[in-house]
Simulated assay, not measured.
Amino acid sequence: MIETIRAAFVIARRDFSAIIFSKSFFFFLLGPLFPLIIGVAAGGLGQQVRDDIDRPVIGVALEASQSAKLVEARTTLSKNLGNGAFPELLLLPNVHPTDPEIKAKLNKASKPLTAIVSGSLEAPVLTGSAPDVKRWSGKIALLSETALSGSNPITVKADFVGTTGSSKKRTQIATAQGGQIILILLTMILAGMVLSNLVEEKTNKIIEILAAAIPMDAIFLGKLFAMLGMALVGITVWTTLGFIGVTVINAGIPNLAAPAVGWPLFCILLVLYFSMAYLLLGSLFLGIGAMATTVREVQTLSMPVTMGQLLVFFLAAYTVTKLGEPIEWFAVLFPFSSPFAMIARAAQMDNIWQHGLALIWQAMFTLIIIRFSVMLFRRNVMKTGNSARKKNLFARMRG
């Protein structure tokens, strides 16, 4: 085992150095920046559309007559200023304006509430998180002044809460979805290089020279971790450039709720689950490279794997809101969807031990795939030599 690890380290160092110090690696780093720019622009447009559709809702806990006046004032002003200028108002008939437990009502309404206005029209009180209260205090004051038909300015009293349960749940789901999207994009961009590297060395007969001196398990393991190291270098460069870009253009980082495990641990788990997703898909590509001898065969075999990866991503994305249900447990236990499902759990569940078990399970399955890939390579290339290349692809898969 120690000799295998040492040999794998030699192969990993060789491949890593050859890739990092090559001229093409610089252009590889620049490649994803162009779709990233397009993605940021499309994301901005999508966010604008979501803002137009997902209107904030403010609960109204006033006397019945004053609630009616406030709703009427909103209707009047919306005709002149546009419906999007004011939040939707939801009457709360069972909530008294002076109810001491009004903060608890934020999470118990029929719709997720941004804030609740209580008190009276003459002295309204807006209860909600600090950003929401600051954003809508002016609009509530204007609605109150219009409802009273007076010229005296209205001052809205703020009653802050840390964060509402409904908004926290929604934003944690958004954090989970963001983590899944980052994993699938990086994995699909970077994992294919494992396949091209192996096929290139098979074509040049380099792999056969290495196999004569080093165990095949060590070669495959070394290549896989060399590519993972290259991927992490690329991610580090892209992340650094991204933070610099955000700082320069002052665009700001999206306001996402803190994951249940906290941001530091969530970022560590994001790196670990990316590594496991990369190793799982990369080991599968190594098995494909062991069977393929031409570029055409590589394309034939890799396309179903890529489509399958998208399917397991869709499975994990579908189960984000179904924690604990059988379909979600299946996504957690199925190795190829497990990294995506577990990063969603990290955003919504605070228990840590489950991530240790998941990482061990994914690592074990990676080793199983590597072992199977080595068996295929020995059977199709090393043992049969040139005669294996004369067989068709289906015959080689059957051995």
Rank of each mutant, 00 (worst) to 15 (best):
L281T: 11
F336C: 00
A231D: 03
L270T: 12
L29C: 13
A257T: 11
E208W: 11
S129P: 05
R379Q: 14
Q180V: 01
I102F: 08
A260S: 13
H355Q: 07
L33D: 03
P215R: 10
T187A: 09
F340E: 01
F28R: 08
V194E: 03
F340M: 14
L281Q: 07
G252R: 08
N80F: 11
Q180M: 08
V312K: 00
S24Q: 11
L224E: 03
Q348P: 05
M342P: 01
D132W: 00
T293Y: 07
A317H: 06
L198M: 15
E122I: 08
F336H: 00
M397E: 06
N351K: 12
I209G: 09
A115I: 08
T306Y: 08
G178L: 06
A395S: 15
A61Y: 03
I11P: 01
T171P: 00
A231Y: 02
E88N: 11
L310C: 05
F27H: 13
I189R: 06
K202M: 14
W263V: 12
F27K: 13
I184S: 00
A226V: 12
F28S: 11
K103C: 02
R170E: 14
F25N: 09
V117K: 00
P87N: 08
L91K: 12
L232N: 04
V305L: 15
Q177T: 10
L92G: 02
E101L: 14
L310N: 05
F274H: 03
P304F: 05
P264S: 07
L270M: 14
Q348W: 04
I102A: 06
G44R: 13
L142P: 00
G178S: 13
V374P: 04
I219F: 04
G282L: 07
A212K: 05
K111L: 08
S166I: 02
I189D: 06
G128E: 02
L323R: 14
I368K: 10
F160L: 10
L241P: 00
I288V: 15
F336K: 00
M230T: 15
M188E: 02
L311G: 04
A395H: 12
T163L: 13
